[in-house]
Design a binder for these strands. Structure first.
Length: 573
DNA sequence: GCCGTTTTCGGCCCGACTGTTTTCAGTCG
């Protein structure tokens, strides 16, 4: 049996939940959670590492004990310590922790005093009034539980970054209008540019005697005020988004921005680092003996700690603090590094704009080139191009190119990878193009081995250049197909192929972890929008966000190159 | 249970808000 990293992480998290309910040593609980994070975020599978004979205790937050437990899970599919814990603390208690307001202490009390093991039990105790017999459960607490239980939507999904931005923008404008407000900034996972966010964190710089919180509660989109204090409030908006707002004085703005940007684990690591140097770091600043040494800007805080400035996208506690200490942080890619878009459609297939309009938009963005990559014949739903229509399009491109100065349209296609790994056009056609973008659009459910072989066989074709949206996942909609990404990347490297980071807001495929894996393996990427309209070209910034989270620099990305160098990269024969 | 330029034991980030209690525990970020 093959256990993936996510499953191992889930088992460790379940252990942590139940141990917490049992009131175990909190640091032991944290150790399980830290290990779960390491495993989930690791680009290679534990199964593979063990196969290669790697010592898992070399991974961060994994010592001898947990290394052994991982091995146990991989070999048996089971974790004995979890069974032992479940013998006296039912696994279903973990679900109760998801009810807002219920933490380990209260769950334990409910279990011990009323034998409540599940959401159903909880519901019964609430409606029978029995719950009031448990110490610590008063009117307000029970009311908030009822509130939660009655809501039909079970768990709030994470919101795609672009949708979160649409919610955030008007709220930021609104907060900025409040008298006395100096600055309003998005923080949290939104600022770290995670592909999805759970809530919005907003930092307001203002004198503390202003009426920011009153102003906030008057925002027309507020559905409910969850908590409201002088410096910190939480509200729920009509669209279901939770928003945390923190007000801070200007002299603490940088420190507060760091605190609210997170990630939680970056903060913990950084505060520990500061602590070891004899400082105290909190959201009000960096202190030594109650004297504030820094805090007005993030830069001041990092540099007083002897660290380079760490970009928000890197603050995930995956090695960025050590890199900042040794001055070896990457010079992250910017949108201005991009010289052209290498995956665009026109109305010849399923795009909405003409060739000419797409070109005009690309030129307005300051690009030096664009490629046209309409679908190939197999993709009938998208009115894929057959040979005759493709050749016609190439003629149009030649014509348009002859009229253009300082801009080039590259001839390409998004060619289907068929089930047997062959491409949807013969070489005689493909060789007339500047390069190809190759993609899977059907037969998503092959086994990992078959799907991986299918892609690698396709790469054997010397006209294969770019693997488009490599995993096929759609955020919140469709899981990735089964592939061995490491094998695919190594095969790409051997053959001189590259992978695409598709910047469509619902794809963002590759994800940040795979971007980092590509960089570590020395595989080049392109960042492309897969634009189906002129507006879609603007998705490039989303791709850049993701790339930055993956530690990518301009040199890792081919479409930062001038045209002649780019073309050289695509010549395989 | 992890970890180390204070190291193999003794630490482990730090503060705001709420509810229930009556000075603080629990939860959250």
């Amino acid at each position: 049996m093959r256990v993936n990293n996510a499953e191992i992480a889930r088992l460790f998290e379940r252990v942590a939940d139940l141990l917490e309910i049992e009131d175990a040593n909190p640091f032991r609980v944290r150790a399980y959670r830290n290990a779960a994070r390491t495993i989930r975020g690791y680009s290679l599978s534990m199964v593979e590492l063990l196969k290669q004979g790697k010592d898992l205790s070399e991974l961060r937050h994994i010592g001898d004990d947990l290394a052994e437990k991982i091995q146990e899970i991989v070999e048996t599919g089971d974790l004995p310590i979890l069974r032992e814990i479940e013998a006296h603390t039912p696994a279903s208690l973990g679900d109760l922790l998801n009810v807002p307001g219920l933490g380990p202490k209260r769950v334990k009390a409910l279990y011990q005093q009323l034998d409540i093991c599940s959401i159903e039990d909880l519901r019964r105790a609430v409606y029978s009034g029995k719950i009031y017999t448990v110490k610590g459960f008063g009117e307000a607490t029970v009311r908030s539980i009822i509130n939660r239980l009655d809501r039909s939507r079970p768990v709030q999904r994470r919101t795609k970054w672009l949708d979160a931005e649409k919610t955030a923008r008007p709220l930021l404008r609104y907060l900025n209008k409040c008298k006395g407000v100096k600055k309003v900034t998005m923080a949290g996972s939104f600022r770290r540019c995670k592909e999805t966010v759970r809530d919005l964190d907003i930092l307001v710089s203002a004198k503390l005697d202003t009426s920011v919180m009153q102003h906030l509660s008057n925002y027309p989109e507020v559905a409910r005020v969850i908590s409201m204090g002088e410096t910190r409030s939480t509200i729920l908006l009509d669209d279901g988004m939770q928003v945390d707002v923190r007000v801070i004085a200007p002299e603490s703005y940088g420190a507060a921005l760091m605190y609210l940007t997170g990630s939680k684990y970056h903060n913990i690591e950084l505060r520990t680092y500061a602590h070891n140097l004899g400082f105290k770091l909190n959201e009000y600043g960096l202190f030594r003996n109650a004297k504030q040494l820094a805090g007005e800007t993030e830069y001041d805080v990092y540099s007083t700690l002897g660290l380079s400035y760490i970009e928000p996208e890197l603050r995930e506690n995956t090695g960025e603090i050590i890199a900042a200490q040794t001055k070896s942080l990457p010079q992250l890619i910017n949108e201005t590094d991009i010289r052209g878009d290498l995956h665009c459609h026109t109305n010849a297939t399923d795009g909405h704009a003409s060739l000419k309009s797409m070109v005009n938009s690309a030129r307005k963005k300051g690009y030096e080139y664009i490629s046209i990559n309409d679908h190939s014949q197999r993709l009938t739903v998208a009115h894929g191009l057959d040979k005759a229509r493709l050749l016609q399009q190439l003629k149009e491109i030649d014509q348009l190119n002859s009229e253009l100065t300082n801009f080039v349209i590259l001839k390409s296609i998004e060619v289907d990878i068929l089930e047997d790994g062959s491409l949807d056009f013969p070489d005689s056609i493909l060789k007339q193009l500047d390069f190809t973008v190759c993609a899977i659009h059907h037969k998503f459910n092959l086994s990992e081995k078959k799907q991986t072989q299918r892609i690698i066989r396709a790469m054997d074709n010397p006209y294969f250049n770019i693997l488009a949206h490599p995993t096929g996942r759609l955020i919140n909609q469709r899981a990735a197909y089964n592939i061995n990404m490491r094998e695919i990347m190594l095969a790409a490297k051997q053959r001189g192929c590259v992978l695409e980071l598709n910047a469509q807001p619902e794809r963002l495929d590759l994800d940040d972890i795979h971007c980092k894996l590509a960089k570590d393996l020395g595989v080049k990427l392109v960042i492309s929008t897969d634009a189906h309209s002129q507006e879609d070209l603007d998705s490039m910034r989303l791709g850049i966000n993701q790339a930055r989270r993956g530690w990518l620099e301009a040199t890792d990305v081919l479409n930062t190159l001038p045209l002649t160098q780019l073309k050289r990269q695509f010549k395989r024969i």
